[in-house]
Design a protein around this nucleic acid. Structure first.
Length: 492
RNA sequence: CGGGAAGUAGCGCAGGCCGGUAGCGCAUCUGGUUUGGGACCAGGGGGUCGCAGGUUCGAAUCCUGUCUUCCCGACCA
């Protein structure tokens, strides 16, 4: 029959893989750790990208593009950052191949063509960008510099997973320079808000905004802010990060400016990014055992129409009606596809589009034509209803909005019921093992304790929530005094 | 990078121990009947068995190497 999807209960990881592959989002490739993003998945990414890009521009940013390669000497300039990424860098050492005399028809690396200085394939672009900014910034009048780039980056991961962790991935990285510390911090939190807004309102995925502990902080940053989402299996996933970089990169790349008093100072920096990993989050947060469930606002296709007919006469009548519906929906800004292909029967198409997560399916047959209705099925609840032709576009738009809201509510209910406050170590471990999700607990604030907890339970501190309530307590592990609870979880 | 599993037609698999020139289901093509939840009948096409070496008269099968993927661990967004 059709393509079977492994159930979540049976094998959550395989379920996730099945959704990606069978839902047509991506494919494995011939390159280790790298995937092919298929048209359906890429359209999803384009939709996400378009919304984010607009948000970035509305907040004053412009796009630019910097090189894929970073000379090693630049890469290592900011030491902490370089060290943080050193273990997962791809390196270009040669620039030419030649025919192999020992192996006719084959090529080999030309040893004569060794680069004097190796090029690092960017795992992130701070180095090349700050090296460039040095030439662009002299005065406070050049600030703030608010630049974003859409790019691919490479991180040579040991273990890869479709969308969640691939050796090459697509993302955007914002890199800004400011005259004051306050302004840079403001930028950092502003972009965090943009991410939270996007993920919650477009991807229908509730997030916790917070700050990372030093252990989890981006290498080279003073502070890393993040949004954390919760997946259906109770594991957390970092959905976006925004870093306050202080003057670390300005100092490493000697980027100074004259202020209004004609005093020289290093500029203050931020960087922030979200990646195709968000697609992994989207898939894991909303989907079910029948396939993907995609939020209408970013779904590659919002409505699919399937005809049900006997004979050419009926088909012709349905075609005519559907043409009207398609035109009306398109005019209303709804993306719609009429699938009248002959090679699949209606039931097969129903299952197929459910697997692909198309939010709304319209079925129309002779019986519907007589009654002046269509059958509308929503993917999120599987509920089916007859809708009148009259005012159909408005009803569909309302339905899409309702689906968007329902998906969000469902994810939020799951998230909210999976933030558990605990005060003893037994409860802590038990909650992680049995209930899963975020565990809110006191922590003495030391990296050593955080590390110990990680070794013992595999749980990390996902974040210290912003505007966290201050509350005296005792560390869950050491019993030492603590001033606030932090969120622990096992994470992707 | 360690431990386990896998790679044979587009997809899912059998065959492999015991070497003899490849098979099943789905998909696909043709014809017909069908169409309100993954249709049915009949006929047809499609595979250098991941890749590279080796053993052998002969390799999907045995040996060596290598690549890719999955699961579990260490590392990470």
């Amino acid at each position: 029959m059709g393509k079977e999807i492994t159930s979540r209960e049976q094998d959550y990881s395989q379920w996730y893989n099945d959704l990606i592959i069978k839902g047509g989002l991506a494919d494995y490739s011939a390159v280790r750790g790298c995937m092919v993003i298929k048209p359906y998945g890429y359209t999803l990414w384009e939709n996400m990208r378009d919304v984010l890009d607009k948000m970035f521009k509305e907040t004053g940013h412009v796009n630019a593009y910097f090189p894929l390669f970073v000379p090693k000497s630049l890469f290592e300039a900011e030491e902490k950052n370089a060290e943080g990424f050193a273990k997962e860098c791809a390196i270009v050492t040669h620039y030419r191949l030649k025919t192999d005399p020992d192996n006719p028809g084959k090529l080999k690396v030309d040893p004569e063509a060794k680069l004097d200085e190796e090029l690092i394939v960017r795992p992130t672009s701070e180095a090349i960008i700050w090296n460039t900014y040095k030439g662009w910034i002299q005065s406070y009048r050049d600030l703030p510099l608010l630049i974003n780039q859409w790019a691919n980056v490479v991180r040579w991961e040991m273990r890869t997973r479709l969308f969640l962790r691939t050796a090459e991935f697509l993302w955007q990285e914002g890199h800004t320079a400011h005259a004051t510390k306050e302004e840079a911090i403001q930028e950092t939190t502003k972009m965090l808000d943009v991410y939270a807004d996007f993920v919650e309102n477009w991807m229908a995925l509730p997030v916790v905004k917070g700050v990372k502990t030093p252990n989890e902080r981006f290498a080279g940053a003073e502070d890393t802010y993040c949004i954390e989402a919760l997946m259906q299996d109770g594991k957390a996933l970092q959905a976006g990060t925004s870093h306050f970089l202080g003057q670390n990169f300005a100092k490493a790349f000697d980027v100074k400016f004259s202020d209004k008093e004609n005093k020289l100072d290093y500029v203050w920096a931020t960087s922030w990014g979200v990646s195709t990993r968000l697609i992994g989050a989207l898939v894991m947060a909303h989907s079910d055992d029948d396939g993907l469930i995609l939020p209408p606002k970013i779904a590659p296709l919002q409505v699919v129409i399937v005809p049900i007919y006997k004979g050419d006469d009926q088909k012709a009548q349905i075609d005519a009606k559907v043409a009207e519906i398609v035109a009306a929906l398109k005019a209303a800004g709804v993306s719609v596809k009429y699938d009248d292909s002959e090679n699949a029967r209606p039931g097969w198409k129903f299952a197929e589009y459910e697997m692909k997560g198309v939010p709304v399916r319209i079925a129309i047959g002779a019986r519907d034509l007589e009654n002046n209705v269509v059958e509308v099925a929503r993917r999120d609840t599987k509920e089916k209803k007859s809708y009148s032709f009259d005012g159909l576009p408005q009803q569909i738009i309302a339905l899409l909005a309702d689906i968007q809201q329902n998906i969000y509510n469902k994810a939020k209910a799951h998230r909210d019921t999976h933030i558990t406050s605990v005060d003893t170590w037994d409860e802590f471990v038990k909650t992680l093992d049995e209930k899963t999700g975020f565990v809110s607990a006191h922590w003495d604030g030391t990296p050593e304790t955080e590390e110990k907890i990680k070794d013992m339970t595999k749980a990390t501190i996902r974040c210290i929530p912003l505007n966290n309530a201050q509350e005296a307590g005792k560390c869950i592990l050491t019993g030492n005094p603590s001033t606030q609870r932090v969120l622990f979880a096992r994470a992707y």
